[in-house]
Computed example of a mutant assay.
Amino acid sequence: MSSDQSSNKKKSNAFTILKDDSTDGHGGYGAGTISLENMSPVIVDPNEDRAFVDMGAMHARSEIERRVKILPNRDEVPNGLLYWIVWVNVGRGENGPYYEGVAGSEIRVDRSIKRAYKSMPQHVTHMDKSLKGKIILDHMDDHSKKLLKDFLVDFNEEMWNNSTDELKQVLSE
Results as ranks from 00 to 15, higher is better:
S2T: 15
S2F: 04
S2Y: 10
S3Q: 14
S6R: 13
S7G: 03
S7F: 04
K9I: 02
K10C: 13
K11R: 14
S12G: 08
S12C: 11
N13K: 15
A14C: 14
L18W: 07
L18M: 05
L18K: 07
K19V: 15
D20T: 11
S22Q: 15
S22H: 09
D24S: 14
I34K: 12
L36N: 08
S40M: 13
S40V: 12
P41I: 05
I43N: 01
P46M: 07
P46Q: 03
P46R: 00
P46A: 05
P46T: 02
E48C: 01
E48R: 12
E48G: 03
E48S: 07
D49T: 04
R50D: 08
R50N: 10
F52V: 11
D54K: 06
M55H: 04
G56F: 09
A57N: 06
M58V: 07
A60R: 03
R61I: 04
S62R: 12
R66Y: 03
V68P: 01
L71R: 06
L71S: 10
P72T: 04
N73P: 04
R74M: 05
R74G: 00
V77H: 09
P78R: 10
N79D: 13
W84S: 02
W84Q: 06
I85A: 07
I85G: 03
V86D: 01
V88A: 02
V88D: 11
V90Q: 14
G91H: 09
R92N: 12
R92W: 08
G93I: 02
G93L: 04
E94P: 14
E94K: 15
Y99Q: 10
Y99P: 07
G101N: 00
S105H: 02
E106C: 06
R108T: 09
V109I: 15
V109R: 09
K114M: 01
M120T: 12
P121V: 05
Q122F: 07
H126L: 13
M127P: 00
S130K: 00
G133Y: 02
H139V: 04
H139C: 01
M140G: 03
M140E: 05
M140T: 10
H143E: 09
S144Q: 02
K146A: 13
L147D: 03
L148H: 07
D150H: 11
D154P: 00
E158Y: 03
E158P: 00
W160V: 10
D165K: 10
E166P: 01
Q169E: 15
E173W: 10
E173N: 15
